[in-house]
């Protein structure tokens, strides 16, 4: 089974033997996907990022490959916050052993900060941000503390 259909092998990204390939990320959002996955700053992970390549499904898409890490379902679902069309391929021994689509859970905890500067969740209280997912497409979140909605610019509020 080929690993990624839209990008010919060897052109921009080398296939990986083990790990996760996140495909069909909306163009330009790859770095935010990495942020959601906790991969930023100094990391030991082997990560390949391709941004703004042509796609049949989206006009432009990003691809992220993370070697030797199989994403958990809850990690995958958080990606839906900014890349609702993303598809996840889990690779073992060079083969896609599982394909998943992303599906936002009903509540997102500790991933997105409330945009209301006067919200109690933006203080030093011992709590994590908690957002209810009111709609999934387009994504509409609501802070459970101050009830402020968040729909645009979600990427700016990633923790």
């Amino acid at each position: 089974m080929s690993e990624i259909k839209d990008v010919p092998k060897g052109l921009r990204v080398k296939p990986i033997n083990n790990g996760t390939v996140i495909d069909h990320i909306a163009g330009g959002q790859a770095l935010n996907v990495l942020k959601i996955l906790g991969i930023y700053g100094i990391t030991d992970a082997t990560v390949s990022v391709v941004m703004n390549v042509e796609s049949r499904k989206l006009c432009k898409k990003d691809i992220v490959k993370i070697e030797d890490r199989e994403l958990l379902e809850e990690e995958v679902n958080r990606i839906a916050l900014i890349a609702p069309a993303a598809s996840i391929n889990i690779i073992r021994d060079g083969k896609v052993i599982e394909k998943r689509t992303v599906d936002l859970p009903d509540e997102i905890v500790g991933v997105v900060r409330c945009q209301n500067p006067n919200c109690i969740s933006n203080t030093l209280e011992p709590i994590k941000s908690r957002m209810l997912v009111k709609t999934k497409n387009p994504v509409l979140l609501r802070c459970i503390y101050c009830e402020q909605p968040l729909t645009d610019r979600i990427a700016e509020y990633l923790i």
Partner: peptide, 13 residues
């Protein structure tokens, strides 16, 4: 009564 929005919900937790 608290100046921050959501403070009562936090308190309830």
């Amino acid at each position: 009564r608290h100046p921050k929005e959501g403070s009562a919900r936090l308190a309830s937790q």
